[in-house]
Simulated scan of single mutants.
Amino acid sequence: MKSSTPVIISRKRKKKKHAHHGGTWKIAYADFMTAMMAFFLVMWLISQTTSGQRELIADYFRQPLKPSMAKGDKTSLSDSMIPGGGNDLTKSDGEVAKRKLTEEKRDKWMENLKRAKDKLQKLIETDPRLNNFKSNILMRLTNDGLLIQITDSPDRPMFRVGSEKPESYMNGILQALAPLLQTLPNKLSLTGHTDSLPYAGGEGGYSNWELSSGRANAARRVLVQSSLSDEQFLRVIGTGSRMPLENTLPENPVNRRISILVLSKAKEQEIRLEDTRMQNPVSTLDGIVQRNVQGYTDGYE
């Protein structure tokens, strides 16, 4: 006889536990957010600084030996117990005062170069020797000084093809620039450039190296004959086709150009020290390290 009592069957399901993922992603995300915060903070701080202050910051990172030589506690080699200070706690003397003086000097020569650029821009508009070649004259202010470039165009070369001899209108451009350059106390660096089209004789014969340096020296002669003192030139060099303009093909005619750099005091000192550093790097190290403080204090008035 079958029992009338129902049979109850109970089934128990085992719950599967999810794998433990950990919290490493949170650390990575926090690091990312911290880095982004630091980046935007740095960008904001840079926007609040003057051009002189930005250059001092750049010099700090260009000279990593300075903190180590100062035993890591400051960015200076002063004997003062107060980092960045001097014997006078009012900061009327010592490194803080020198740094302020440096910034003032830098701002002053930058303003002088800006005025020179404005004068040249007005001269280009009024002088027919320059006005007809506005598209061939490029100007911009850089940390190294005021850069003036006289470029070729496909239909109007500044020098005779393959020659160091300037065209008559190139002579006119240089003669128009000479009086303005003469009024500036800054030294000049004059550089010749060519495009990348090679000579048939190859690099072993007469090449773009000789052509660029010859054209630079020919431009110097025209400027000197136009009343500019030869003593104002600090260097005259040719770089061949090695330094094309940004965003241009090396064979582009615009790369055939003469660059006149009205040197900042800092760049002038850097050029003058190039050979000295190579000949005696140990003895000049101290001067290089302290460049932030005293490199510009004797800038042009």
Score class of each variant (00 low, 15 high):
residue 51 S to V: 12
residue 52 G to S: 03
residue 52 G to A: 05
residue 52 G to H: 01
residue 53 Q to S: 15
residue 55 E to W: 00
residue 55 E to R: 08
residue 56 L to P: 03
residue 57 I to M: 07
residue 57 I to A: 04
residue 58 A to K: 13
residue 58 A to H: 02
residue 61 F to H: 06
residue 61 F to A: 08
residue 61 F to I: 02
residue 62 R to D: 07
residue 62 R to T: 06
residue 62 R to S: 08
residue 63 Q to R: 15
residue 66 K to M: 14
residue 66 K to C: 09
residue 69 M to R: 12
residue 71 K to N: 13
residue 72 G to L: 08
residue 72 G to A: 00
residue 72 G to H: 00
residue 72 G to Q: 00
residue 72 G to F: 02
residue 72 G to M: 04
residue 73 D to P: 05
residue 76 S to W: 02
residue 76 S to C: 11
residue 77 L to E: 00
residue 77 L to N: 05
residue 79 D to S: 11
residue 79 D to W: 10
residue 79 D to R: 11
residue 81 M to S: 12
residue 81 M to P: 09
residue 82 I to Q: 04
residue 82 I to W: 03
residue 82 I to L: 01
residue 83 P to C: 02
residue 83 P to F: 05
residue 83 P to M: 01
residue 84 G to P: 01
residue 84 G to V: 00
residue 85 G to Q: 04
residue 86 G to T: 03
residue 86 G to F: 06
residue 87 N to G: 07
residue 87 N to F: 06
residue 87 N to H: 05
residue 87 N to A: 05
residue 87 N to M: 06
residue 88 D to G: 06
residue 89 L to K: 05
residue 90 T to A: 06
residue 92 S to Y: 01
residue 93 D to F: 14
residue 94 G to E: 05
residue 94 G to M: 07
residue 95 E to D: 07
residue 96 V to G: 01
residue 97 A to T: 07
residue 99 R to M: 12
residue 100 K to A: 11
residue 101 L to P: 08
residue 101 L to K: 13
residue 102 T to M: 03
residue 103 E to R: 04
residue 104 E to P: 09
residue 105 K to Y: 10
residue 105 K to F: 09
residue 107 D to P: 07
residue 109 W to Y: 13
residue 110 M to E: 02
residue 111 E to N: 15
residue 111 E to P: 12
residue 111 E to I: 14
residue 112 N to Q: 14
residue 112 N to G: 10
residue 114 K to I: 11
residue 115 R to S: 10
residue 115 R to G: 02
residue 116 A to W: 08
residue 116 A to H: 09
residue 117 K to F: 01
residue 118 D to V: 08
residue 118 D to W: 02
residue 119 K to P: 00
residue 119 K to N: 13
residue 119 K to T: 15
residue 120 L to V: 08
residue 120 L to T: 11
residue 121 Q to L: 12
residue 122 K to N: 15
residue 124 I to C: 11
residue 126 T to Y: 03
residue 126 T to N: 07
residue 128 P to I: 12
residue 128 P to H: 09
residue 130 L to E: 03
residue 130 L to A: 06
residue 130 L to F: 07
residue 131 N to E: 10
residue 133 F to Y: 15
residue 134 K to H: 08
residue 135 S to A: 15
residue 135 S to P: 05
residue 136 N to P: 00
residue 138 L to V: 08
residue 139 M to L: 06
residue 139 M to T: 13
residue 140 R to I: 02
residue 140 R to D: 06
residue 142 T to E: 12
residue 143 N to G: 13
residue 143 N to P: 08
residue 144 D to A: 15
residue 145 G to A: 10
residue 147 L to C: 11
residue 147 L to Y: 13
residue 148 I to N: 02
residue 148 I to L: 10
residue 149 Q to F: 02
residue 149 Q to E: 07
residue 149 Q to R: 10
residue 150 I to V: 12
residue 152 D to E: 03
residue 153 S to F: 03
residue 153 S to E: 02
residue 154 P to W: 00
residue 155 D to K: 14
residue 155 D to N: 14
